[in-house]
Simulated scan of single mutants.
Amino acid sequence: MNILDKIIERKKQEVTEAKSKISIEQLKDSEFFGRPTLSLKKTLKSKSGIITEFKRQSPSKGIINNKVSPLEVVSQYEKFGASAVSILTDKYFFGGSFEDILSVRNHINIPILRKDFMIDEYQFYEAKSIGADVVLLIASCLSPTQVSEFTELAHSLDLEVLLEIHSEEELKHINKNVDFVGINNRNLKDFKVDLQHSVDLKNQLPKDIFSIAESGIYNEEDFIFLKEKGFDGFLMGEYFMKNENPGEKFGEFVSKMRI
């Protein structure tokens, strides 16, 4: 089994356990379930175009930064013009939790992307209940039919959908209802990064869809290269999180890039 297979197996167990503890009806009674969501489509255009990320660790990099608090970091992300913030909620592999979103939801006014491995409709109700505005669908662990059905469910909950792809084969997962297509510069099966591969894929996307370059953006040159190739947005996590003060690092980056 590759790492993605291991993550999905673990996720299935976690979802089954969560369902046994809290029902969908109970999720609907949560504080944030009825809140109006914020639109990433709007903030991508009006702010920096960068979706910053709060991520403590990853299977490929180990511990990235486990010494800063979500609120401390994302408040500065917002201050310096982030279009949104991606927050990992997978605990076992990425060190995240629902609390990482809950602790910041009332303190920022930009969209929050719940970044996790969405394999069951239950997780969409979870996302809504903790105050997320956008959910991630990863093509490599879903069928095109699941992507279509999950997109419809997400929209019924007023959540936007970022569909992540990495291969030509996964282009078939795209449907007219997904809000954004993210192209992961990093292969989730072996963690190799190839920016040109992402550009080649972008050139095959429908012309009217928002494209987001994800992961593996390690320096200013990578960012400039992808921006010049026409990506509408950029999801960047490790580049900022590996610093002692991720928020300040983001501020420096925005200033340097004159975004």
Rank of each mutant, 00 (worst) to 15 (best):
E99A: 15
L27P: 03
D208P: 00
D120F: 08
Q196E: 13
N243M: 09
G251T: 04
I112F: 07
I259A: 11
R105Q: 04
F223S: 02
Y125E: 00
N2A: 08
R35E: 10
E160Q: 14
N243D: 14
Q204E: 14
C141Q: 08
K41M: 03
V254R: 02
K249P: 04
H197N: 14
E149H: 13
M1Q: 12
N219A: 05
Y239Q: 11
Q196P: 15
Y239D: 06
F80R: 14
F223H: 03
P246N: 05
I51E: 11
K45E: 05
V199I: 15
V254W: 04
F250S: 01
N203C: 07
F33C: 00
L71W: 10
P144S: 05
E25T: 07
R105S: 05
K229Q: 14
I212D: 09
E214L: 03
L38G: 09
I110G: 01
Q26E: 15
E121P: 11
S156F: 05
S255V: 13
E169C: 11
M236I: 12
E228A: 06
S69C: 09
N185Q: 02
S23W: 00
V134L: 10
K67W: 10
A82K: 05
R258W: 06
E78F: 04
G49A: 02
V73I: 06
L163K: 00
F124W: 03
L163I: 03
L102Q: 13
I64T: 09
H197I: 14
R258S: 12
E17C: 11
N243F: 12
S103R: 10
F93Y: 08
G49M: 00
T89W: 07
K202D: 01
V73H: 05
Q26H: 11
E164N: 10
S39A: 13
L205A: 03
T52P: 11
R35F: 14
Y239N: 07
E169S: 10
S39N: 12
K79S: 06
I22F: 03
D120Y: 14
F191C: 05
S69Q: 15
Q76G: 14
P206H: 01
P246H: 00
T145W: 14
F94E: 14
L44Q: 01
L27H: 00
S46G: 08
L201V: 00
I63W: 15
E220P: 14
V181W: 04
L44E: 04
E214S: 00
K189F: 13
L113K: 03
K19T: 01
I212M: 04
N187P: 04
I110N: 00
D100E: 06
I3R: 12
G182H: 00
A213T: 00
S167Y: 12
K227T: 02
A84F: 05
K91G: 06
F32D: 04
A132H: 10
D133I: 05
D194V: 08
N65I: 07
F150M: 13
K249V: 09
T16G: 15
S211P: 07
K28D: 02
K79V: 06
E244F: 15
Y92K: 10
D100M: 06
R56V: 06
F225D: 07
K189E: 10
T89P: 05
A18W: 09
S58W: 09
K189C: 11
K28Q: 06
Y92D: 14
